[in-house]
């Protein structure tokens, strides 16, 4: 960094010498929550902080984490996608079913194309026709679910000869002891993080979400940016579906049900605003990890999975409330 950058930061320091605790908590509060939670859970269980458990959690969160990266783009751009859960089911079913027909490689391509197509359709409705993304994708949630059900006839689909294919590696394999889904998640995190913070596209995304009108007045092609976020989210959902399919070597209609809720909660919990224009991939990672460790911790403490739904309800409301309240400077509207 150049010398003038230094003077700038000096300027800033001199203007606010006192450490502002409220500001720190506002900025990094989520990290404190995360640490407290980990300490709390590890005090109550023995195996929580072991390396194996850590890897297990990472593997568990990787699918949702990948889609959360797409959803982060979506929310920064100021839109929503509620159809990702259904899309996970659809792509998982497609990849499994086509595996035995066309082979694993073609099956993966088909699943990815399906994810991109559905995303493009959503993006067309929201970006070009300017429809409300919440309701459109809410409708699409059911349309996709129904298509999946029609496709499978409500049956499980599975790969018949599981020993004879490399396909299971994606979901089950390890490289240097690290599960492959975690590696894929890591790669996507890096790509998405870098694109968001280093590229023109990332800047445009923040602008479009932050102020669509001013973006238009700066010559930014808002329609195409919005359109692209849906394609990207569709793509991440497809990758998630493929990994899930590979891990289970089978799929069924309700595989991804409720994912949209977990994913939006994670992204918002990380601190990405529902109003668009702010957020980041590292924040999303933290949100995803908190939810992942929470769910793992709950299970280790002997709670059934659905207890977590209730906790997540509170977390979602709490996280959004904090965001809304900090925007308006008051707790209550």
């Amino acid at each position: 960094m150049g010398s003038s950058v230094k003077t700038e930061s000096n300027l800033k320091d001199s203007s606010s010498k006192k450490i502002n605790f409220a500001e720190i908590i506002k900025r990094h509060g989520i990290l404190f929550v995360f640490l407290l939670m980990i300490i709390g859970i590890s005090l109550r269980t023995d195996s929580f902080l072991t390396q194996n458990n850590m890897l297990l959690v990472l593997r568990q969160v990787s699918v949702k984490g990948i889609i959360a990266c797409g959803m982060t783009y979506m929310l920064i751009g100021g839109e929503f996608d509620l159809s990702v859960g259904s899309l996970v089911s659809l792509t998982a079913v497609l990849v499994i079913d086509f595996h035995d027909i066309l082979g694993p490689f073609a099956a993966i391509i088909i699943a990815i194309l399906a994810g991109i197509s559905v995303g493009a359709f959503n993006g067309f409705l929201v970006g070009f026709l300017k429809l409300n993304s919440l309701i459109v994708t809410f409708g699409m949630l059911f349309v996709i679910q129904a298509l999946t059900l029609l496709y499978t006839g409500g049956q499980y689909v599975s790969v018949s000869n599981q020993g004879a294919t490399w396909f299971s590696i994606i979901g089950r394999g390890f490289i240097f002891g690290i599960p492959i889904p975690v590696i894929i998640f890591g790669i996507i995190l890096i790509i998405f993080g870098v694109v968001l913070s280093k590229t023109v596209y990332g800047r445009y995304l923040y602008s479009v979400g932050g102020n669509p009108i001013a973006s238009k007045f700066s010559g930014i092609p808002k329609t195409y940016i919005t359109f692209s976020t849906f394609i990207i989210t569709g793509l991440t959902a497809a990758i998630g579906g493929i990994i899930l399919g590979s891990r289970l070597m089978s799929a069924q209609n309700y595989l991804g049900q409720g994912y949209e809720f977990d994913i939006i909660t994670a992204v918002v919990l990380g601190g990405t605003s529902l109003f668009g224009g702010s957020g980041s991939i590292p924040k999303t990672l933290i949100g995803v990890l908190i939810l992942g460790f929470l769910s793992n911790g709950f299970i280790m403490m002997g709670f059934p999975y659905y207890v977590q739904w209730v906790v997540q309800w509170a977390i979602l409301i709490g996280a959004v409330w904090m965001d809304v309240a900090s925007k308006r400077g008051k707790i209550l509207a």
Partner: peptide, 20 residues
Amino acid sequence: TKAGINAFIVTLGSMLGVRG
């Protein structure tokens, strides 16, 4: 009303929370 959160998000939360 009081917290000022979008109804869609509020009820998306309670949809799963109540189911829990």
